[in-house]
Design a binder for these strands. Structure first.
Lengths: 368, 368
DNA sequence: TTGTATGCGTTATCAC
DNA sequence: GTGATAACGCATACAA
């Protein structure tokens, strides 16, 4: 049988394109076929079952055969095919992660947190960027689901308003967890920051320091994160009897220094100069600092940043700054732990979805 | 046959742990089994082969059956199993990436570049962090190789001195590409920055501005990146007739602001005060700025940074700065393109390894 | 144009 | 303890 003979020479990879040659059994081919348990079995005159068991250190295999198998396996440079194992085990030991973008500290930190936990538990991580596109997000989710990942962690894109793709995953029985950019309507595990509280605290703090005209420079309010912070900001003002002034509120479509530079300049030149600024993310804070420098005005004495609190960026920039620290790495860790628990739950009853809300810390750095 | 009957109820996932119940054919189970081409075939009274071909839009299938198959597939919520396909095709359409750490701009930018190119070509990306550990790097490479990834991109950990794991991959016929943190000894595709030239240029620039005592604050010289920059630095001094002073050279074990703060302070207080600083990465530059502030001295008028050139971080910090821009995103893109070419090469002859050396740009920002 | 049979590499089931 | 053999879900050579 051709197939039978060919097997001994077939390289087993589309990397080697000379299939025609192989079909003609051109033995001069230098390609190597990959070693399988079948090969080991043949060499030892045992069954593949025995080899499989021996390699997995099953208790029902005699020590001698075990050793023999392992010895030959090493000699032949055997490597188990994880895909084949996944197929039969119905678990790939892979977590899928979807974030808006990977090259922004907050998200890469989260991923790092996810990866660190996953790796310890023997899981791999597959990463995708939605690039803030709903379309792409849906596409990615489909790929992940079809790849038999054991669980999917998602931070929604800015565009995402429809959650059918998530419902779909649930229907297919695939564990999903939303983190940071979430939605309310779906009963599902979530990990978020308590942005409302964080914003409130930070604005309270500014007010305590005697500030009255506190500007708000934030991202698109369509994102729950941003909206929550906005509400926290407003709530603090109300509770402290400070009139809310729409002119002090700036909603940016993107998180870029450029935009915040423009925003702050406009704010300032409009005669509405604030005495403090509450802004999202250090990236925006840098913009504010830059703009104030450029305008030749003193850097706002009280600048509050609600970001992930990467001190490295802001620490040496402004002497007096208050940060609402969003522990992105920890959020990632928490998210991974939670979904792994869901994946490996042992209960007989329905899994209970949990929403973990991380309370951001307030880091106050006084000018010296 | 039990197995036969069970199939209709078997959910097909270890996510559902109630296997005992299933074995007893407890039909009350709410779990859904996943739909396969077999199910579609049964429903339509055709063979699985036909379904398979129809779904893949094969030209040898009549339009009617195609449409019928697709219709039923949708109705039954069929989703192809990518793992099974990979097993047969011997290609998972996945690229593996190993970086020292993901939550550092340079690496996350690179990954972003890789991911963006890969995604466009229908490839997924699997990411791992070696955490600068050789041990972990080897472990990861083994996992990736056994997962049938189509190619592996690696940036070595700081510890990595032995390259057997890479040789191993080559032996197994798995395309590998080294980027940024590479080694010379292996004939293999590589993408690096021309750090020697970059450093030389940047130091030349400082010298042109009249600087004579140029400090060097860099990472561990065991890394080729760092060594190359050091050599470039030295080369520039020599060519410009400026004596090399070992006291002005500081080798840090890690890239942290803290360490560079200490380094700069020591440098300054030792009476060896430089008139310019050439330092790696903006993260170190921030340290230098912080230290100079703290010491109450003027920020070095000429601070040169050899980093990935994330302007956001340094732009608003120092008015006068020179950056050796390391286009990390582009390096990632280039790396992905290169390995994809290797994976999909059509030639019959041996693939030719290519070393792409990205020339860093010099970005000079004058104080206004 | 479609069906049959076989295989991808592994593990699970049931014999012995 | 070990061996046959059937899965896993899909794709393809060969037949019809």
């Amino acid at each position: 049988m051709l197939a039978e003979i060919a097997h001994d020479f077939y390289v087993g990879s589309n990397r080697f394109k000379n299939e025609k040659i192989l079909k003609h059994l051109n033995v001069t081919s230098t390609m190597k076929k990959s070693i399988t348990i079948k090969d080991i079995a043949k060499k030892l005159n045992v069954s593949t079952a025995t080899v499989s068991r021996a390699l997995r250190n099953s208790s029902e295999i005699s020590k001698e055969t075990k050793l023999a198998v392992i010895k030959i396996a090493k000699e032949m440079h055997y490597h188990p095919n994880l895909l084949a194992r996944s197929l039969i085990k119905k678990s790939s030991k892979v977590l899928g992660v979807v974030v808006p973008t990977i090259n922004r500290q907050f998200w890469s930190n989260s991923i790092s947190g996810i990866e660190s936990v996953a790796y310890k538990k023997g899981y791999k991580v597959m990463i995708f960027q939605s690039a803030e596109s709903y379309q792409k997000e849906v596409e990615i989710v489909e790929i992940l689901a079809n790849s038999m990942v054991d669980g999917i962690l998602i931070a929604f894109s800015k565009e995402t308003q429809n959650y059918d793709h998530i419902e779909d995953l649930k229907e297919r029985g695939i564990p999903v967890l939303l983190f940071e950019r979430v939605c309310d309507s779906i009963p599902i595990s979530k990990v978020t920051t308590d942005d409302f509280l964080g914003a409130k605290r930070i604005v309270n703090h500014l007010i305590e320091r005697g500030k009255k005209r506190i500007a708000f420079i934030g991202g698109p309010l369509s994102l729950t994160v941003c909206m929550d912070r906005f509400l926290g900001y407003k709530s603090s003002l109300v509770e402290n009897g400070i009139p809310f002034d729409q002119n002090l509120v700036i909603e940016l479509s993107e998180f870029t220094t450029e935009l915040s530079v423009i925003a702050f300049k406009n704010l300032w030149s409009s005669g509405e100069s604030p005495d403090a600024v509450f802004c999202f993310a250090d990236i925006l804070a840098l913009g504010v600092l830059a703009a104030s420098k450029e305008l030749g005005i003193k850097v706002p004495e009280d600048l509050a940043i609600a970001g992930f609190g990467n001190d490295d960026i802001t620490k040496y920039v402004s002497p007096s700054i208050t940060t609402m620290s969003q522990p992105s790495f920890e959020i990632g860790q928490l998210a991974a732990k939670l979904i792994l628990k869901e994946i490996n739950f042992e209960e007989k009853d329905e899994f209970e979805y949990k929403t973990e809300i991380v309370k951001p810390d307030l880091i106050v750095r006084e000018s010296t």
